[in-house]
């Protein structure tokens, strides 16, 4: 896949002799949602943290938009157009909803140590753009509220808004549905896929909720003990005997195909 937005080749990482990730390769195209699933400890988080720059891989190459990002810091990687959400949402609790987004826009556009970042009140900068993003996410009504007062579902959505504020080309979402009610989960994922298609974003996400994975992922990649054991469209993956053995089980815990 030469037109892929994200390509990962032969990524490996060990901790004190334990191989967390071994030779993982993958690619995500613009507008595509790729789900990464697998048992706990399969290496999903390590993979994510390497893509994001939080840890450095032992071997392998990561390319984002054709640029080699292997071993760059999270700040640098974010500047190359990578947005990220966390399993437990991370937002700035002491600020208002709008300020959260404004800061992300400001940072993406001007950096945080440019001369102009010392002048003027952030509250007056790029307010209109921030409101556009909040509107898209459905949080405009809460723009002036303190982030601390929001229910968790809204905080998860705000996190997506912050990730989108930097106008990313690639979105990394670590268990986007964790901690949300079933309906909220579906709404959030529907919104994510709509935005991904409209803006031609590449999305890589991990998830344990198979209902979400099977409904929203264009492709699925399955990890076990740090290695890729299956890859393909949802239909193929759910029928794959290996995947059933290590991960999916008998199927009592997610919706069956009708």
């Amino acid at each position: 896949m030469s037109d892929a937005l994200l390509t990962v080749e032969n990524l490996s990482k060990s901790y004190q002799g334990v191989k967390a990730v071994q030779g993982v390769s993958l690619a995500v195209a613009p507008g595509e949602l790729l789900a990464m699933i697998g048992p706990n400890g399969a290496g999903k988080s390590s993979c994510f943290n390497m893509l994001n720059g939080q840890i450095k891989p032992d071997t392998g190459r990561i390319r984002i938009c054709g640029k080699d990002t292997t071993g760059l810091s999270p700040e640098r990687i974010s500047r190359l157009g990578v947005g990220r959400t966390f399993q437990v949402a991370e937002t700035f609790l002491s600020m208002t909803v709008r300020e959260n987004v404004q800061l992300a826009i400001q940072s993406a556009r001007h950096g945080t140590l440019s001369l102009q970042s010392f002048f003027g009140n952030l509250g007056r900068k790029s307010a209109a753009e921030a409101d556009d993003i909040l509107d898209l996410i459905g949080l405009l009504g809460e723009a002036g509220r303190s982030c601390r007062e929001l229910p968790y579902g809204d905080i998860k959505r705000l996190e997506l808004a912050i990730a989108l504020a930097g106008d990313p080309k690639l979105l990394l979402m670590d268990e986007p549905a964790a901690g949300m009610a079933t309906r909220e989960r579906m709404l959030l994922m529907r919104l994510t896929s709509r935005i991904a298609k409209e803006r031609q974003l590449a999305v890589l996400f991990t998830e344990h909720d198979m209902d979400i994975v099977f409904e929203h992922a264009d492709r699925i990649i399955v990890l076990n003990r740090g290695q890729v054991i299956a890859e393909g469209p949802p239909v193929d993956v759910r029928m794959n005997a290996d995947v059933q053995a290590v991960y999916l089980g008998s199927g009592a815990l997610y919706k069956q195909e009708h």
């Binding site: 048992p39 706990n40 268990e175 964790a178 344990h208 991960y247 008998s250 009592a252 815990l253 997610y254």
Partner: peptide, 9 residues
């Protein structure tokens, strides 16, 4: 929560 379906079984 957060556990592979097989372990949940």
């Amino acid at each position: 929560e957060g556990i592979a379906p097989k372990i949940v079984e």
